[in-house]
C-alpha cells in the first residue's frame, strides 16, 4: 500500500533522513523505532506532506505523493496524529471528529450557508458517523464536552479518532502511548487491533518497547537518520547493532 523508496532530506548540513526505504501493507502494524533525534518524526512529516524530500519517491496505492501538500495527502487516504497533542481544544469532542471528515464532505459554500436539504442530510450523517466512531474508540459519552476537558490519554485517543474520520487506509501514529497510564496503554493496544480489522495499515512511532514488541508485526529501526535494521520483532530484539544503538544512545 505505502512504498517509500530511498527518501533523503537534509536541513542545511544535517541529513535528517538518509536513503530510507520501507513498506507498509494494509491491515498490519509497522513500527518505527530508534533513539531520540534519529529522524522518526521527520520521516512522518515527509510521508504526510509537511516536508518535501530532496530525493526518493513515496508511492501510495500506485500514486507518487512526495511533495504533495498535507491536505491533499489526507484526501488520498493517509491520516496522522502528532507527538504533541494537536486537537482543536475549544471545540467539542464530536466537532473535532467532524473536522476530521472535512475531505469526505461534499457540500459547497452556498449549499452550506443556505442549508439545502442535501447539505442538512450530509451534516446529519456526518454527526451520526462521528458518534459511531467515538463509540468505536470508547469516547461516546464525552461527545459534547470540550476537547480540552479530556484527560491526556483520552485526548490521544480522540486524535486517533479524528484521524479515522477521514476514512484513511493508512494511519500514522506518532508516540500515541506517550503520557498514558498502564490501563490506557492496554486500551490503546486493543484499539489498534480493532483498527486493523478495518483493513487500515498503521505505521507507529513509539518509545514504549513493551507495547511496541507486543503490537508491531514488523519493525524498522532508525539511527542518525539512517535505516539501521528491519525485520520481525523477535529478530530486531536480538539484533546486536540495534541493542548497541539503544545502549549507546540517550535512551
Amino acid at each position: 500500500m505505502l512504498k517509500v523508496n530511498n527518501v533523503t532530506l537534509s536541513f542545511g548540513g544535517l541529513v535528517a533522513n538518509n536513503d530510507i526505504s520501507m513498506e507498509v501493507p494494509a491491515g498490519k502494524i509497522i513500527g518505527l523505532i530508534g533513539p531520540n533525534g534519529a529522524g522518526k518524526t521527520t520521516f512522518f512529516n515527509i510521508v504526510s506532506g509537511v516536508y518535501k524530500p530532496d530525493k526518493g519517491t513515496i508511492v501510495f496505492n500506485g500514486t507518487e505523493i512526495q511533495g504533495k501538500r498535507p491536505y491533499q495527502i489526507n484526501k488520498l487516504g493517509i491520516a496522522r496524529t502528532y507527538q504533541v497533542i494537536n486537537l482543536f481544544k475549544k471545540m467539542t469532542v464530536i466537532d473535532n471528529v467532524v473536522v476530521g471528515m472535512h475531505s469526505r464532505l461534499n457540500q459547497g459554500y452556498f449549499s452550506a450557508l443556505f442549508k439545502t436539504k442535501k447539505a442538512r442530510e450530509e451534516e446529519k450523517m456526518a454527526y451520526e458517523k462521528a458518534l459511531e466512531l467515538l463509540d468505536f474508540v470508547g469516547l461516546k459519552n464525552r461527545a459534547y464536552q470540550l476537547a480540552d476537558s479530556l484527560s491526556y490519554g483520552e485526548q490521544r485517543i480522540l486524535e486517533i479518532c479524528r484521524g479515522l474520520a477521514s476514512n484513511p487506509q493508512l494511519l500514522l501514529l506518532d508516540e500515541p502511548a506517550a503520557g498514558m497510564n498502564a490501563t490506557e496503554k492496554v486500551e490503546l493496544d486493543q484499539l489498534m487491533q480493532k483498527i486493523l480489522k478495518k483493513d487500515i495499515g498503521i505505521l507507529i512511532i513509539e518509545h514504549d518497547m513493551k507495547l511496541m514488541m507486543g503490537v508491531a508485526d514488523y519493525l524498522y529501526v532508525l539511527n542518525y537518520g539512517k535505516l539501521l535494521a528491519h525485520g520481525v520483532t523477535a529478530d530486531i530484539q536480538a539484533n546486536p547493532e540495534v541493542i548497541a544503538a539503544y545502549l549507546g544512545g540517550d535512551e
Binding site: Y71, N74, N86, L87, F88, V99, G100, A165
Partner: peptide, 15 residues
C-alpha cells in the same frame, strides 16, 4: 475555525 486554532492539525485533517 479549526485552521485558526491549529493550522498544522487542520492540514492533516484535509483542510
Amino acid at each position: 475555525r479549526a485552521a485558526s486554532m491549529d493550522p498544522m492539525a487542520a492540514r492533516s485533517c484535509g483542510i
